[in-house]
Computed example of a mutant assay.
Amino acid sequence: MSSRSVGGSYYSHSGADVDFLCMPPEPHYRKTTSHGQHAILYGGEFDKTFIPCAVCRKNKVSTVLMIPGKDTCYRGWNREYYGYLSHRGFAARTSFVCVHVHPEFIRGGGHNYDGKLLHPVIGSCGSLPCPPYVNNYPITCVVCSK
């Protein structure tokens, strides 16, 4: 695996993500637009210097890994599912999650109670390197196991 950069929420946004994401150097895209509300993914930086990232794994221990920006796993890993990166995007702190490309829904009658909301995540060029990322494109994700 080659060099990666760190991604996440904007440092001062209300409801910013609590986790850092390890972004792959060659992202995969399935959609080029996002409808409705969305969260935004930024690159990580030490004031004017981009931050590299690494994923560590111990042998003989089962591992499940969510990879943002990909829809396939690296060689030797098994794809459990793939979809789109999602985030709450409002005042409450939360984490990025990978939502299945064809999510199942519980039928409830069409009410909107504004509970725990999820919105697609789009990339924002600048601290997130473009290319290879594309401004305003929805970010894919994959969950892999080994």
Rank of each mutant, 00 (worst) to 15 (best):
M1Y: 01
M1N: 01
S2K: 08
S2V: 06
S2I: 06
S3L: 08
R4T: 01
V6L: 09
G8R: 04
Y10L: 13
Y11M: 10
H13N: 13
S14L: 14
G15R: 06
A16N: 12
A16T: 08
D17Q: 11
V18K: 14
C22I: 09
M23A: 04
P24Y: 06
P25C: 08
E26R: 14
E26C: 09
H28D: 08
H28W: 04
R30L: 13
T32W: 13
S34I: 14
H35W: 11
H35L: 15
G36M: 09
H38K: 14
A39W: 05
I40L: 14
I40C: 09
Y42K: 08
G43Q: 02
E45T: 11
T49I: 15
T49F: 12
F50Q: 11
V55A: 10
V55L: 15
C56E: 10
C56Y: 13
R57M: 08
K58E: 08
K58M: 12
V61G: 00
S62W: 07
V64K: 11
L65V: 12
L65P: 00
L65C: 09
G69S: 04
K70L: 15
D71G: 07
T72H: 07
T72K: 07
T72R: 06
C73S: 03
G76F: 04
N78E: 05
R79D: 00
R79A: 01
R79N: 00
E80K: 11
Y81N: 01
Y81D: 00
Y82Q: 04
G83C: 02
Y84W: 08
S86N: 06
S86G: 06
R88D: 04
R88W: 04
G89Y: 05
A91V: 10
T94N: 14
V97T: 11
V99L: 12
H100D: 13
H100G: 04
V101P: 09
H102I: 15
H102K: 13
P103A: 03
I106T: 12
I106P: 02
G108T: 13
H111D: 08
H111N: 11
N112E: 07
Y113K: 15
Y113M: 14
D114Q: 15
L118R: 15
H119W: 11
P120W: 04
V121I: 10
V121E: 01
I122D: 01
G123D: 00
S124D: 05
G126P: 05
G126R: 09
S127V: 06
L128R: 02
P129S: 10
C130K: 05
P132N: 03
P132K: 06
Y133M: 06
Y133H: 03
V134S: 03
N135C: 07
P138G: 04
I139S: 00
V142L: 06
V143F: 03
C144L: 10
S145I: 10
